[in-house]
Design a protein around this nucleic acid. Structure first.
Lengths: 211, 211
DNA sequence: GTCTATACTCGGATAGAC
DNA sequence: GTCTATCCGAGTATAGAC
């Protein structure tokens, strides 16, 4: 789960992150986990602190309030998936066709959401529950991410790689929804992530692709 | 907890529902709405009471505790979708093929979830957040519902109406997930429910159907 | 049956020691 | 930077009037 920095060398010299920064990151990771499992109203600073290995008041040294901490988790979650998917797309061979790019994005989204980051789960599960004021910063990120997916689908459509009778917006939301919801039921003990990725890609390819 | 007797109509004869029963139902409806929008920990009895048009302590006449009320909402939510889908399937012409039954179930699920019932949204959104003890009763209903979908897919597979290379379990969860998630983004002001139903059915038909 | 008043608990936030 | 101690508002639940 977390991109927890892991204990860095105590030995001085090569230290790239000051201690305060690492503690802040640990609190953020802990908050993402609690937020993802307990929800917005259920997220207690005491639980976050326990997960991070310190006492609740220490959180106030790094964040102004509970809502500020939660807003940061939501923002970071949305920001990092988007960054990850964009990196993966950028690394594809230039000759990759539009459908190939969609399938790569599907894989990148699923792997990041389910394997790497608690933030995305937290963000996605609580989007509908947190007050407007707390969502604001994350909302811009989410809009940008949604925009990226729309571009992918529109490029595929322009290239004639999609069925022509499709409602692109509805279909896109359905597919993203299927992936987001996977966080609710996917259990690594029952199914490998590779299998889930393959099934999702198959559903997308057959469901929207021209053949 | 459910059928606490309650006082019956004083006026005798023609009344089909005693007043106490109707008030209980109103509280339950209100709780479903609040639970769906605020989440488990965010559901305050005061808000539920306000939605139902009475004061918070009145709730205790019908329910033993906050958790008992919420557990009832979760149970009723799961119970009613399942009942609705089963009714729709039972009303289909006997000659309907297996894929036709799946598409009918997709339509029934979406219409019930998005148009008729706040319960399903509440149940679906909070499945991961409420404590085990509160989920217990609803869990059996959800298992039965999941079982019903598995039957539908297995019958389609046995009839040779599905692609042969499919992981049936994963695909089923992906499709149910896409539908459940629709409650998070579908906005009747932008898209008609008919359009959503059609797009979902198309995704299923092309995504898993043979040819 | 539904209300007002209130006891009790819990969690966010601040003060101030170290 | 992180702790202990504490204040305070919010929310569940109960008592008891009507």
């Amino acid at each position: 789960m977390a991109e927890r920095a892991g204990a860095r060398a105590r030995t001085g010299a090569g230290r790239s992150l000051p201690k305060s920064h690492r503690t802040r990151e640990r609190i953020l990771d802990a908050a993402a986990r609690v937020l993802g499992s307990k929800g917005y109203a259920g997220t207690r600073l005491q639980d976050v602190a326990a997960e991070a290995g310190l006492q609740a008041p220490a959180i106030y040294y790094y964040f102004g309030s509970r809502d500020e901490l939660i807003a940061e988790v939501m923002y970071v979650g949305a920001h990092r998936v988007r960054g990850h998917v964009i990196d993966v797309l950028a690394a594809l061979p230039v000759e990759t066709d539009a459908m190939g790019r969609i399938l790569a994005a599907v894989e990148a989204h699923l792997r990041y959401e389910l394997l790497i980051s608690d933030y995305t789960t937290a963000s996605v599960r609580n989007a509908g529950q947190v007050p407007e004021s707390v969502r604001e910063r994350a909302a811009a990120e989410e809009a940008a991410y949604s925009h990226m997916w729309r571009d992918l689908f529109e490029q595929a459509q322009a290239a004639g790689e999609l069925r022509s009778d499709l409602d692109l917006n509805l279909t896109r939301f359905l597919i993203i929804g299927a992936m987001n919801w996977a966080a609710e039921w996917w259990d690594p003990k029952h199914r490998t992530l590779d299998d889930l990725v393959a099934s999702t890609q198959a559903l997308v390819l057959n469901g929207v692709g021209r053949h």
